[in-house]
Write a protein that binds this DNA or RNA. Structure first.
Lengths: 308, 308
DNA sequence: CAGATTATTTGTCCAGGACAACAATGAACA
DNA sequence: TGTTCATTGTTGTCCTGGACAAATAATCTG
């Protein structure tokens, strides 16, 4: 698993904050209190976190998100942590998504050409909406899970994302100009890099004739608010991957809600906000891609005059 | 702690960091050095930034992004700052590129639908290679310059980038599987977000039949090296926007060169490395998109048996 | 057993010092 | 005139170690 190229990689505290979502202050205070992490120091005396400690921090954050308390997990060994992680041994659903495992195999082996060809075939066979809901979404989840389990390299995941972007954006573009309301503004907030979720939503909305304006990833909230007003937007859509801390997501959404004019709707989707509807008054939590179409239908029946 | 709903009141330091993108340490050290911002304190002694100071910080952030230095702006009054933001009335060059000004107008006005339509027309008219070299590259430069002059919002630039990605990726994807050598691995290094340059190169190479594997933006160097070896890559291509510090670019490239096996070529392009060929032994500096095709021809004549 | 009270845990903030990376300036040189 | 190199000031990020209140667990009481 670990080869020579890997050894040189030790991250500074800012990089660890980005990678794990744990604040610099938190990392330092854990070191003081629990004795972990225990980074090396460079010539300047600054912390350098070896890759294995970063990985352990990653596991710890997973466990914290599931309700564990720091005092129980920060001191434990990597093996104990892995054991805790695998407890919820989900009953293996026998719903293996259509062709999903084949596609995952291509990602795993770095066979990007075959991957691209298969994706395009699936797109033609299923049509854009079903392709997104039945192929892209489950495959992306599988890829993320495989990366968490250490089965694939991060570079494989990047390559996968790139290929998928090519396919999805080509399909989105081929719809040509769509001018129907609502006018939807899409983005992720700072700290959230994952762009595939956004593209899936865009694909779903565009194929319903909606006018979509995407700002890509990591738009500062003030800019989002300004852009929404200036472009006469009806709905602002924000997506969060599972890697985003749920608590932060909620705080930011409420802040954004307060910042937007009340007549502009705010939709939020993604793993980090799933099931958080009751904590998010004024925000429409979108459970999945089908629910996105549902939300769209609701908006239209509420705001557009019934069409003959 | 921070609450979302007091938008008219004052923000805690964490909220200001999120809103302005200025780090907590930076905010504190500015207060120490320049006397601004000067937040109130709550009962606990913690900083509370009034809304007007946050807005001023936002303006300062804009000016810093445009190359101003903190010592010149952090001490200035809000009026002076607003004056600096106004267009410094450049000597209007009368070199309006073919059609470029029309397209730029669409970006400026946020008319994304018209922009997308015009781009697709230009693509069909010119073909992918000329489209990239004669439309995408100059337009992207114009957009960057217009943003520097304060003529367009950052959100307009993001929307432009998204639209352009849709067009380019659609075109790249429509080439179908291309298996000819060299096998090229494309990415940007950490710290470099701009992805359009990479896509322009990918489009150019793909339309020459080259097998391209893109990893998108910000791939850590260790992962790049590993991916190059594991995927039997012939050429690694890296791009740097003008926003990337030239000195860092050179250091990183030399480091990457040392990390890669000698038989794998390393190409570098973008504003930050232009004219730096002599400081980069072992790296092929690619001046522009035409030069990319030139580099490709050189590689093929050196490595492939002459074809009948 | 529910509800109130106390104890512990935990993340974030503070002050003020230090330092290397970066930009600007000036000198030496082709 | 333009390029390279050294110097000097600027600037963001990191450091230590202390503090405190919000959140959570533990204990007590009716």
């Amino acid at each position: 698993m670990n080869n020579a190229l890997n050894n040189a990689a030790a991250l500074c505290i800012a990089a660890v904050e980005r990678d794990t979502g744990l604040g610099k202050d938190t990392l330092r205070v854990w070191e003081r209190r629990y004795g972990f992490p225990k980074p090396d120091r460079d010539a300047k005396g600054e912390r350098l976190y070896p890759a294995d400690q970063v990985e352990k921090l990653h596991i710890i954050r997973c466990l914290l998100d599931r309700g564990q308390r720091p005092s129980k997990v920060v001191g434990a060994s990597t093996e104990e942590l892995r054991a805790m992680l695998e407890v919820p041994d989900e009953p293996r659903a026998a719903d293996a998504p259509v062709g999903g495992s084949d596609l995952l195999q291509y990602v795993r082996l770095g066979r990007t050409v075959e991957l691209a060809v298969s994706l395009r075939k699936a797109l033609l066979r299923q049509g854009l909406q079903r392709f997104v809901a039945e192929t892209v979404a489950p495959l992306s989840e599988e890829v993320g899970a495989a990366w968490m389990r250490g089965e694939i390299q991060i570079s494989d995941e990047h390559a996968y994302t790139e290929q998928m972007q090519n396919v999805l954006r080509g399909a989105i573009g081929s719809f040509g100009p769509a001018g129907e309301r609502p006018r939807v503004l899409l983005s992720t907030l700072p700290g959230e890099d994952h762009v595939l979720g956004l593209l899936m939503v865009e694909a779903t909305l565009v194929s319903e004739g909606t006018a979509c304006l995407s700002l890509g990833a990591r738009t500062p909230m003030a800019d989002l608010g300004r852009a929404a007003v200036e472009n006469a937007i009806d709905v602002v859509g924000v997506s969060f991957s599972g890697a985003f801390p749920a608590r932060q997501a909620i705080d930011r959404l409420l802040e954004l809600r307060a910042m937007l004019p009340p007549q502009i709707a705010l939709w939020a989707g993604g793993a980090a906000v799933r099931g958080k509807q009751k904590r998010l008054p004024g925000v429409r939590v979108v459970a999945d891609l089908d629910d996105t179409r549902q939300a769209l239908a609701e908006w239209r029946s509420a705001h557009l005059p019934a069409r003959a």
